[in-house]
């Protein structure tokens, strides 16, 4: 019993080492190549230099301001776009009428890259918060719309028939069968939307903003401060990692029946 337990711990340690091996090698290479002077500090600053940049940003009160601005934009845009996307996707998935009247609209507008809309949003909404939130709203709208729609349309007809035999009305069928059935797909839509909105917010901030991680990266480029650029890049990477972990944990909890 004891031995088995030890073997388990050993195995888990090995797995952990496997997981962090590549990031560790990259960090070592980064450290060595910059301190040995193989790569110029103006191209790639040393890890210590990036750390210093982060500390200096924090001292100026910009570090959390940037993260906060970017996060609040993602959150606002996602809440708006996600809500509309899920509602519209449900209507289209459930009622063939909505499917018919939106078919052409979806086919024409969905393939347009959201990035190409940024100039239009700036023209219409100015360079304030609205234009950036609009970009994320549209991006999250499409991701949730398509996944909700497809999830509902892929419903197992046999389950609907079963509900019919049991005398369930349309509303009960939607509530107890169609939605729970489509929920994993809707959740996938939400996951894709959040991940994609990181990209949208950074891009939008690079084009026009006065705070935010994307803005900071662009600003640092203009000021030739590569350290700050890398602070931004690492922030985005870590944020992505955090979102992924949360999403997966939640997924395990929500869909444990599968």
């Amino acid at each position: 019993m004891m031995e088995e337990h030890q073997i388990d711990i050993k195995r888990e340690m090995i797995h952990f080492l496997e997981i962090i091996a590549i990031p560790l090698i990259i960090c070592i290479l980064w450290q060595v190549s910059t301190t040995k002077g193989w790569i110029k500090a103006s191209v790639l600053p040393a890890p210590a230099g990036v750390w210093d940049s982060a500390v200096s940003l924090n001292e100026k009160g910009l570090f959390w301001l940037d993260i906060g601005s970017s996060l609040s934009r993602i959150l606002k845009g996602f809440l708006l776009g996600g809500t509309i996307g899920i509602i519209a996707g449900s209507l289209i998935g459930i009622f063939p009428f909505f499917d018919r009247i939106t078919k052409v609209f979806v086919a024409v507008f969905r393939p347009i890259p959201i990035i190409s809309l940024i100039p239009i949003f700036i023209l219409w909404l100015g360079i304030g918060e609205e234009s950036k939130i609009a970009v994320i709203t549209i991006g999250t709208f499409w991701a949730t719309l398509i996944n909700t729609m497809d999830g509902i349309k892929s419903i197992d007809r046999k389950l609907v028939e079963m509900a019919q035999i049991l005398g369930k009305n349309k509303w009960e069928t939607i509530r107890y069968i169609i939605f729970p059935y489509a929920f994993p797909a809707i959740y996938t839509g939400i996951r894709i939307a959040i991940t994609a909105s990181i990209g949208y917010v950074i891009t939008a901030e690079m084009i026009a903003a006065s705070a935010g991680v994307g803005y900071r990266i662009m600003y640092a480029r203009n000021m030739a401060q590569p350290g700050i650029m890398f602070v931004g890049i690492i922030e985005i990477g870590l944020f992505g990692l955090l979102v992924d972990l949360l999403v997966l944990k939640l997924q395990e909890k929500l869909f444990s029946y599968r």
């Binding site: 046999k158 035999i165 005398g167 729970p180 029946y257």
Partner: peptide, 19 residues
């Protein structure tokens, strides 16, 4: 149409997997 007086069991159990 379907009636409460008559129920049916199918070849597949058709259970809801989340319940």
């Amino acid at each position: 149409g379907t009636s409460p007086r008559c129920k049916m069991a199918f070849q597949e159990a058709r259970l809801l997997p989340w319940w």
